[in-house]
């Protein structure tokens, strides 16, 4: 029997505690979130503030749907500004993204059972972050926006056929994007609550129970829908933007 250097059981441990349920090192998740989410935010900010259109023939970027071209004194207000606030608010207050940014950007905590940097008194979501309680209002906005995106997909397909082509690569991207966004939006925790989660007696309200179960199917993978839909939005916009700027040729099947 040998003894290690004296230590208190409640002394801070090194920040290297490994989650035994995960094969990945504990820095992997926060590092990935910071990189990908950070990169997306920068990309989105540039598109919203700099780009003037998301339209290329029958295609419309999700950043610009619905299209609102408002001029003030001859100056076109960046059209994406009218749209971007809704997904920004939805993702900022999303219960999954809260985990992602609290862990990765704020280290509250960076990973389970690791130490946190010394900071002021922790108040959770009771003070500054209290606005997260309005997630349902962001859901209402994104619910409507998703309907616009479905309209864009259908309108894009119809317009393409009027131009003599059956299907464009952009149509496919827009369809995949709206499917991913629908999976994310309609699996939202606030929607799950509104659908039936707020009811105490499921057997007294069969319709709401059925709706709650449907939302739950999507909700159990809400994190994956969140990431997949972020990348589909990104990919769809990149493709349309490359077309707009004439970098790549239009690909379509006749």
């Amino acid at each position: 029997m040998a003894t290690a250097p004296a230590a208190s059981s409640h002394e801070p441990l090194p920040g290297t505690v490994q989650n035994p349920y995960s094969a990945l090192p504990n820095w992997f998740y926060p590092a990935n979130v910071v990189f990908w989410l950070g990169l997306f935010v920068v990309y989105a900010a540039v598109v919203v503030l700099v780009e003037r259109t998301g339209r290329y023939g029958p295609y419309l970027s999700p950043f610009f749907s619905p299209e609102i071209n408002l001029r003030v004194g001859g100056f076109l207000i960046p059209p994406a500004i009218w749209v971007a606030w809704a997904p920004l608010a939805f993702r900022l207050t999303c219960y999954y993204y809260r985990k992602a940014y609290f862990r990765s950007f704020l280290w509250h905590p960076r990973s389970c059972a690791v130490n946190e940097p010394k900071r002021a008194t922790y108040r959770g979501e009771t003070r500054f972050w209290i606005f997260n309680n309005l997630h349902r209002y962001a859901f209402y906005a994104i619910f409507i926006q998703t309907l616009f995106l479905w309209y864009d997909v259908i309108a894009g397909l119809l317009q393409h056929q009027q131009l003599g082509a059956v299907l464009g690569f952009g149509n496919l991207l827009m369809l995949v994007n709206v499917l991913a966004l629908s999976g994310y939006t309609y699996g939202c925790h606030a929607f799950r609550h509104l659908a039936g989660g707020g009811v105490d007696c499921f057997s007294c309200s069969r319709v709401r129970f059925a709706l709650w179960r449907g939302v739950t199917v999507l909700n159990v993978r809400h994190d994956r829908w969140a990431w997949v839909s972020m990348f589909t939005v990104w990919g769809t916009d990149v493709y349309i933007r490359l077309l707009v700027h004439g970098v790549i040729p239009h690909a379509a099947w006749n």
Partner: peptide
């Protein structure tokens, strides 16, 4: 309940696999 910031560590460690965050705290 407002003190919880949804980092889901409780769900990760639960030996009974209760969805503590998704099914209790968030509701």
């Amino acid at each position: 309940v407002g003190m919880c910031n949804i980092t889901k560590c409780c769900t990760e460690v639960c030996p009974e696999h209760i969805h503590i965050t998704d099914n209790a705290i968030i509701p």
